[in-house]
């Protein structure tokens, strides 16, 4: 069952406060978080979080398309190993 709309999206309060403080500082920094359950809010866009996957903190660069998803969706807990082939990475 989906979460009730009247409750609004869930986000850990301390995370919201820290993100606001980090945005105010305007520095190049990663915010390490364990809160995989928190919803990505519009005020997180442009920030980089290190989301714990049980072993390490994977960098998650938040963009507009990620708003409404959970942080944990972008930090898989299972190791995937593949070959690079002709795949490309774009520098953000």
């Amino acid at each position: 069952m989906a979460r009730s709309v009247w409750k609004g999206p869930f986000v850990d309060g301390y995370l919201l406060n820290k993100a606001e403080a980090s945005r105010a500082s305007g520095r190049n920094e990663i915010i390490r978080i364990w809160s995989r359950r928190s919803t990505i809010m519009p005020q997180f866009v442009g920030m980089t979080f290190g989301v714990y996957n049980g072993r390490k903190f994977l960098p998650v660069q938040v963009n507009e398309n990620m708003v409404g998803h959970k942080f944990g969706e972008f930090s898989p807990t299972r190791t995937f190993t593949g070959h690079s082939g002709d795949k490309k990475a774009k520098r953000g």
Binding site: Y14, I31, T48
Partner: peptide, 10 residues
């Protein structure tokens, strides 16, 4: 980058 650790304060 610098890393900020967000402790689960409460």
């Amino acid at each position: 980058p610098d890393e900020i650790v967000v402790a689960d304060e409460d």
